[in-house]
Design a protein around this nucleic acid. Sequence first.
DNA 1: AATAAGTTTAACCAAAAGGTTAAAAGAAAT
DNA 2: ATTTCTTTTAACCTTTTGGTTAAACTTATT
Lengths: 209, 209
Amino acid sequence: MGKNISKEELILQTAMQQFIEKGRHGAKMQEIADKAGINKALLHYYYRSKEKLYAKIFEFLIWNNVSEVFKLFEEDISFTEFIRKFIYSYTDLLNKNPKIPMFLLRELSEGGNTVKAVLKNLVDSKKFSVEKPLTIINTAMQKGEMVQMDPKQFIATLVGSCLFFFIAEPIFATLFIDESSFNRDAFIEKRKEAIYQTILYGVIPRGEA
Amino acid sequence: MGKNISKEELILQTAMQQFIEKGRHGAKMQEIADKAGINKALLHYYYRSKEKLYAKIFEFLIWNNVSEVFKLFEEDISFTEFIRKFIYSYTDLLNKNPKIPMFLLRELSEGGNTVKAVLKNLVDSKKFSVEKPLTIINTAMQKGEMVQMDPKQFIATLVGSCLFFFIAEPIFATLFIDESSFNRDAFIEKRKEAIYQTILYGVIPRGEA
DNA sequence: AATAAGTTTAACCAAAAGGTTAAAAGAAAT
DNA sequence: ATTTCTTTTAACCTTTTGGTTAAACTTATT
C-alpha cells in the first residue's frame, strides 16, 4: 500500500470506501477515522464536517463517472461498432468499481440538498453533451442502420442491461446462481457478448444478418 | 384516508414510507412517530426496536415483490407472448410503487445481518421456483424460437431493461429529459413497447419477422 | 538553538436518536 | 360501579455520534 500518501488523501480514500459501502447515513466519522488509523479530529481539521466530506466525495464520484460514460460516446466509429464498444467498455468500467453505481443511484434517489446542488452544477457546466449520443442514434436511424425508436428508449435499454448485474448482484445471485460452480468474472465476460447480441439484433432492421 | 386503521397498522405503513424513502439509517423513529401522529413509545410498544420494525418491513416488501415477479413466470403462454406479458406487467408493477425497487436493492447491497437472515429464509422456503423461468427459456431454445443463450443472461437483460428507468430516474431525467415537454406516464408506456421490440428481435432467430 | 507554523491527539461537549418507565386514559370484564 | 387489562402518553435515560478544544508533537524558518 502507498506509504507516501498524505493524511488528507488517506482520509478521502477511506471515507470514500465507507460512504460507498454504507451510504451517507450509514457511514460514521469515528469508523472512518479508525479505518484510516488516525484521530477523528483530523477529519474535521481537513474537511470541517461530515456533510462537506460527503459532498466532496459525491461530487468527485459523480463527475468522474458521468464523464467516463460520456467519453464512450466520443469515438467516431460505425453504429454497430459503437454498440459493441459501449457495452464492453461500460461493463468494464462498472466492474472496476462494482459498488459505485449503487452508491451513486442510491444517493441520487435520496436526493438531499447537497446532491441537488452537485447535480445542478454538473448540468450547468454543460460539459456533458447529450447531443453526441442522440446524434449517433439519430444518424443510425436516418441511414437505415437502426429501426425507428426514441433514442432515450434505446439508451435506457442499453445502459439498463449493462447496469443490472452490478446493481442487483446480491438478489440475482441468491436466486439464480448456485455458488459452487459460479465464476463471476466469466459471467461478466459472457454478459458483454449476450447484451451485444441481444441489443444489436434488437435494433437493427429485421432481416439483416 | 382510512379512519378504521389500527395504530399498529398505521405505524407499519408510516414506517414503510419512511424506510423506503430514506433507508434503514436515514429513517428516524421520532420522525415516523410524528408522521403517524402518535407517541414514539408506541413504536416500541408494538415493535420493540427499530431493527425489528425494519426487519418486518423489509421482509414484507421483499417477499411481496419477489413473489409478484415470480407469478409472472407462471402463465402458460407462447414464448413471444411471455416476453411481452412479462415486460408489460413487470413495468406496471414497478410503476405502482416506483421507489420500492431502489429500496430493496439498496438494502440488499448493504446486506446487514437482518437482510441476510430474511434472504436465507426466502431461499430456504423454496417458494420461488427458479426452474419455471429457466424452463420457459430453455424450452424456447429447444423449439428454435430463441437463439442459444444462457437463460440467466437473458433474464438479466430483460429485468435490467425494465428496471433501469425506475432505478436511475433522477440522473436519467436530469441528463436526457427537458422537463417542460416530458410526459412521464407516456414515456413509461412507450418504454414497454421499446423494450419488447428490442428484446424480442434481439433473441428470436435472425431472419424471422 | 529558538521560534513559528502546521499537524495530530486525547479528552470533552452537545445534540441527536433509540429506548424505557411510570402514570394516565380507555376499553373490557366482573 | 368496580376492577382488570390494554393502549397511549409525557418525561426521562443511555448510547451514539458529529463536532470542539487545548495541549503535545513535528516540521519548517530564522
